[in-house]
Amino acid sequence: MILVLKRQIKGIPVLEVVGDADRHQPLPLVVYYHGWRSAKELVLTQARKLAAAGMRVILPDALNHGERLQPVSEVPSWTFWQSIQTNLAEFSLIIDYWRQLNLIQAGRIGVGGVSMGGMTTAALLTKHPEIKAAACIMGTPAPLAYARLVRENVQVHQLAQPDDLGLLTSWLTAYDLTEQPRAIAERPVLFWHGTADERIPYEQVAMFERQINDQTYAKNVTFLTANGERHLVKPALMNTITAFFKSNL
């Protein structure tokens, strides 16, 4: 039986998803992030699959989402970037909680997520060498390029935005994986993206694949392209993600 346990970790609402028999045993730990305007409960199916494969899975609610839901700022994209930044700030708090309980097996820490959660995942790789494997699903490793695209779209639609929004989100530079690809450091990383994704452009991931192709530090990176697929996770993909973590964590 798979247990789904509600917890509060330093004020962060999370679900712990784990096999009943393994609940008190050290296990590989996977922190898995949901997408924009979603919630932790909406990635429970993926978490159950990972838990059935022998992992402890932690599903946090991002700031402004789920149990932490707040109105979206009138400043375009501001709530989006704030949510990702808070995910990054809180990652170590989550890991430290399970580390102090001695429930992380041999330092086997994984991270993954969909859409906004995928962007969180790629950003975490730039600063957290303790991550052993990661899966960026429908996200982008290029938040600077994505932020520029969002600002351009806002201008096209003649919406008001601060002139210094780029400066206000300048922290993205430090977490852009395309700016520091060597941070991958030969770790297993899975990128999955549909070519017809209407929310996060497939080309940003395709460009990154071309950028790091044949580099030694990226020898364990896998890019999966889904021709014609849109911004949607299907059951077969969940099985692929589970197999990836089972093999690499």
Rank of each mutant, 00 (worst) to 15 (best):
N153D: 12
T140M: 07
G194D: 00
I94K: 07
D197R: 09
A106W: 09
P76I: 02
V17I: 12
M1A: 10
I95Y: 00
Y202E: 01
D176K: 00
A147M: 09
L237C: 07
D214W: 12
T242M: 01
A145E: 14
G11V: 13
R230K: 12
A174S: 14
K234Q: 10
V111M: 03
T240A: 07
R23Y: 13
E179R: 13
E209R: 09
G117A: 06
K40S: 06
L63I: 02
L159G: 11
P201A: 15
P129T: 03
A243T: 13
A52P: 02
T120P: 00
L63K: 13
V150I: 15
G118S: 12
S170N: 14
L27Y: 02
D197L: 05
A243E: 13
N153A: 12
E203N: 14
L93C: 09
S73N: 00
V233L: 14
L88S: 02
K127H: 14
G66D: 04
V18N: 03
G117R: 07
H231V: 06
S170D: 12
L168E: 15
Q155M: 14
A122V: 04
A135M: 08
E229P: 01
R48P: 01
D96V: 11
W171P: 00
T120Q: 06
Q70E: 13
I137Q: 02
L69C: 14
L93T: 11
I137G: 00
L144G: 04
Y202G: 03
M116G: 05
Q180P: 02
I200K: 00
D164S: 04
A134R: 07
I84P: 00
T195S: 15
L63A: 13
K10S: 14
T45E: 15
I2D: 00
L167V: 10
W98Y: 15
M119A: 10
I84S: 04
T45H: 14
K40Y: 11
M116E: 12
N213A: 08
S77I: 03
G166S: 13
N248T: 07
G35A: 10
L224G: 04
I137N: 01
E186C: 09
A123T: 00
D163S: 12
T126D: 06
L124K: 01
P162L: 08
P60M: 11
Y217F: 09
W192L: 04
A236S: 15
L88A: 02
N87I: 07
P76V: 02
E203F: 15
M55L: 15
M238R: 14
A122Q: 05
V154S: 08
Y97V: 11
D164Y: 08
I104W: 09
R23E: 12
